[in-house]
Amino acid sequence: MINFQAIKTIYLFEMARMKRTLGQSVASPVISTSLYFVVFGSAIGSRINEVEGVSYASFIVPGLIMLSVLTNSVTNASFGIYLPRFAGTIYEILSAPISYVEILIGYVGAAATKSIIVGTLILATATLFVDLNIQHPFWMLFFLFLTSITFSLLGFIIGVWADNFEKIQIIPLLVITPLAFLGGSFYSIKMLPPLWQKISMANPVVYLISGFRWSFYNTADVSLNVSLIMISLFLIVCLATVRWIFKTGYRFKS
């Protein structure tokens, strides 16, 4: 029997943590995104021609949302599971009648929810600066959900792997943010020299942003199918890693 009560308890506990750190969780991504709009969209963007038939300020909207969703998912989920490990309160979760899958749903579900909220807030903020006309709203939501869940899974893995706060910070800072910046948040991959275009193809974030941007403006760096396959692959890798963690009890149980 599924312990729904426990899933709900973990989920609500994590959401309450977000409420407590409202400034950190919500205000900071909204403010930093607004700054990007001012600097890139208005100041620099006014001197850049349209990209792929879209004004530059509008062009960067999907990339900016992805940038925040990626870092938020990873940070939220990694902190969510790392904090009880760090504080020692994990004993209670391990001794409760909960399966690993239920633990995962609680933590990853809450982290993904937060990211989706942040993504939606940024989208709302963006409408204050630019006119948005979303071509494929269903696909837009689909990408938003899938990305939030996938990267929350990645965050969960990092939170299980990390044994100090530095490791928790280092992945979003040194891996996710650079990948997101180089993944075409602020430019189209097609604007790069051929060699760099090829190198960029190794960056998984390119496919995410490309697919997400396609749902907004119907233009993409890579085809929709390739984007979908790449995200699914990444999701499968994360799920397999989580499965391995649970099977071996890695960093959970001695």
Binding site: A6, I93, A96
Partner: peptide, 9 residues
């Protein structure tokens, strides 16, 4: 929270 974890209403 503890009560909820153990699946009790």
């Amino acid at each position: 929270f503890s009560r909820g974890l153990f699946g009790k209403k």
